[in-house]
Design a binder for these strands. Structure first.
Length: 289
DNA sequence: CGCTTTTGACCCGCGC
DNA sequence: GCGCGGGTCAAAAGCG
């Protein structure tokens, strides 16, 4: 569904159909309670419908975003044959041309996790076109994810499937740095480094290098799969068992919905409109005593 | 059995 | 040339 069309859809109005004339305050307290319960039910249903709308919007937003990333990468790949330029010649996989969905992964991840701070140098189309000029370097972006400091895992859910191939203690940081490769497509040149911030142990810093030459994982199981150890984002404490094909996409989706719902509920304008709608209905439908 | 993580060894660039 | 440090490899082990 087109986002603009959806936003203009009549069903989005704040009328919310609260009351619908059925609500009435009777002399009898029991009836009043039942009426209130029924009202609560209706509001709950309405809430559910709104959440579904939000989910649909999130889905269409993701589709649009990936289409846009596609267009951008098509434009950029016409002129530039990027060589990731690793230090070793024996890495033949690295010679595969990079393609679609570059910073979109990081951007999408930042949408899905409410505490993510996407510090990717570029997610806008303008910057993407700037990057075309940087032919020699693989694209690098950084993503900050807040997690539980007590959790030692280096898992960043970003919608892709990663395979850990190394871990190192670096000089400038007592926390180990983990190295991941995209395992969804064997030829995907994208690498990811994840390290806990030295200053803020609750902050995971993920550094992405290169671009995925495939779309996002088409099935739920192809989400973040690195982890026998607990996988953690700011939202969900995770299982400690190893589940390589774990279905986490619904979580991501739910996260999106929750975030959007939170945005709405934190919006004073929305709150005021909602309160006005509800109280207006109640007042109108309550018979004067 | 296949896939993933772990981890020590190795490679390579860089500064001195 | 040498040492250091970051990045990667690959064998072994774990897990479902």
């Amino acid at each position: 569904m087109d986002l603009a069309a959806w936003l203009n859809a009549p069903s989005l109005d704040l009328g919310l159909h609260v009351g619908d004339g059925k609500f009435s305050v009777e002399e009898d307290d029991g009836k009043e309670v039942r009426a209130l319960e029924a009202e609560l039910d209706r509001v709950t249903q309405e809430n559910k419908r709104l959440k579904e709308k939000l989910a649909a919007m999130a889905a269409s937003y993701g589709t649009l975003r990936s289409q846009m990333a596609d267009l951008i990468s098509k434009a950029s790949s016409e002129g530039a044959s990027v060589s990731p330029g690793t230090k070793r010649n024996r890495h033949t996989l690295d010679s595969f041309a990079p393609a679609p969905v570059p910073a979109a992964a990081a951007a999408a991840a930042s949408l899905g996790t409410n505490c993510l701070r996407n510090e990717a140098e570029s997610t806008s189309s303008e910057d993407s076109f700037k990057r075309v000029k940087e032919e020699s370097k693989p694209k690098v972006s950084k993503l900050h994810v807040r997690t539980d400091p007590s959790d030692s895992s280096l898992i960043v859910k970003d919608g892709y499937q990663w395979r850990k191939y190394g871990q190192k203690i670096t000089r400038d940081n007592p926390c180990p740095r983990a190295y991941f490769r995209c395992s969804f497509a064997p030829a995907c040149p994208v690498k990811k480094k994840v390290q806990r911030s030295a200053e803020d142990p609750s902050l995971l810093v993920a550094t992405y290098e290169g671009e995925h030459n495939h779309g996002r994982a088409p099935h739920p199981g192809a989400q973040q799969a690195s982890g026998r150890s607990s996988s953690v984002t700011s939202q969900s404490p995770a299982p400690s068992t190893r589940r390589p094909q774990e279905a986490e996409s619904p979580d991501l989706q739910a996260g999106l919905v929750e975030q959007m719902a939170a945005t709405l509920t934190n919006d004073p304008v929305f709150k005021a409109a909602l309160a006005a709608a509800i109280s207006g209905r109640m007042l109108r439908s309550s018979p004067p005593k």
